[in-house]
């Protein structure tokens, strides 16, 4: 899975998982303020990313992510380290 594919899947995952308008899921979108996620959603996100990438994640992995682009960066690192 290349970077572009991974990003596309992540955007779709975010929109479907958290009932978001796909148009709002952009790299600059802030997870909490713009997309309305909460701290428990961050835990669910970690689980969903695990399913998506096959990499093991912990809720702490996404603790410092504030935008969608941050999540992409973290996922790329996880995939690269696999």
């Amino acid at each position: 899975m290349n970077d572009e594919e991974l990003s596309a899947r992540l955007y779709r995952l975010l929109a479907e998982h958290f009932e978001l308008d796909p148009a709002k899921v952009t790299p600059e979108a802030r997870l909490y303020e713009d997309l309305g996620l909460d701290s428990i959603d961050a835990v669910d996100l970690a689980l969903a990313v695990e399913d998506l990438t096959g990499c093991e994640t912990t809720p702490n992995d996404f603790q410092n992510a504030s935008t969608v682009a941050d999540v992409e960066t973290i996922i790329r690192k996880l995939v690269a380290a696999k």
Binding site: H17, F18, E19, I40, D41, D44
Partner: peptide, 8 residues
Amino acid sequence: LSPPHAAR
């Protein structure tokens, strides 16, 4: 529903 959908 999935947990995030159910909570919403």
